[in-house]
Design a protein around this nucleic acid. Structure first.
Length: 210
DNA sequence: GCTGTGATTTTCT
DNA sequence: GAAAATCACAGCT
């Protein structure tokens, strides 16, 4: 009905190093409320994209990405992937730096029927186990580019309890800087994105974060 | 269960 | 003109 001002994540949460923000977003709740529909989910998978030294980051090779990822922490960075899928990212970085967190998967909570219909599936694990699926389920599009998650009335993030087991691995679907372990996910969740061709799934307990 | 392929469009060189 | 932070489905085993 409205953002919970006590639990809503504010500017300070996102104004830190990108990787710790990606880790701490695990377990938090993403809310989208539009057209009287209430949609929410518990974030279970994220990836960090750093400044121009991270060659997989749009900050390194895309003008639009670089300019967006230098903006105010907490703003939304949307882009289209492979000509088809929308991707939902949150600007997260220290001052005078660049960075964003890609939200890759969530466990559906509110609005499951609506999201199943939008996705054209019957298994809840198919609702948001991947960044493109997630945007389709929530109805997010490039029109949401630059929305401020700390003030917007239709999209926001609320604090939640951290998963019992947090694992990390290399990031999925990239070719440059592939060795960095900047993907983080809930080791207990059924809702993380599935393994597919050629992807190395060396999962390690996250002890320290770059 | 796994692997290969095509879809489709924005952005940059 | 190519590449891209993906997905679904066909066809095989």
């Amino acid at each position: 009905l409205a953002p919970d001002t006590q639990r809503r994540l504010g500017r300070a949460f996102f104004a830190r190093k990108t990787a710790p923000v990606a880790v701490e977003l695990l377990g938090c709740l993403i809310h989208v409320e539009r057209n009287g529909e209430q949609l929410s989910g518990r974030i279970v998978e994220t990836e960090a994209y750093l400044d121009s030294r991270d060659l997989a980051s749009h900050a390194a090779w895309s003008r639009r990405g670089r300019e967006t990822m230098k903006q105010e922490p907490g703003l939304v960075y949307m882009y289209r992937s492979y000509g088809i899928h929308a991707m939902f990212n949150i600007v997260a970085k220290e001052p005078d730096s660049a960075g964003a967190v890609l939200i890759r998967a969530f466990e559906p909570l509110d609005g499951i029927e609506t999201m199943l219909t939008r996705r054209g599936v019957s298994d809840p694990r198919q609702i948001a186990s991947g960044p493109g699926k997630l945007c389709q389920a929530l109805g997010l599009s490039l029109d949401d580019h630059l929305v401020d998650l700390t003030t917007d009335q239709s999209i926001w993030i609320e604090d939640g309890s951290a998963p019992g087991t947090i694992l990390n691995s290399v990031r999925i679907g990239i070719t440059k800087s592939p060795e960095l372990p900047l993907r983080f996910f809930d080791g207990q969740s059924e809702h993380v994105s599935a393994t597919r061709r050629g992807i190395v799934w060396e999962a390690n307990e996250t002890k320290s974060v770059p």
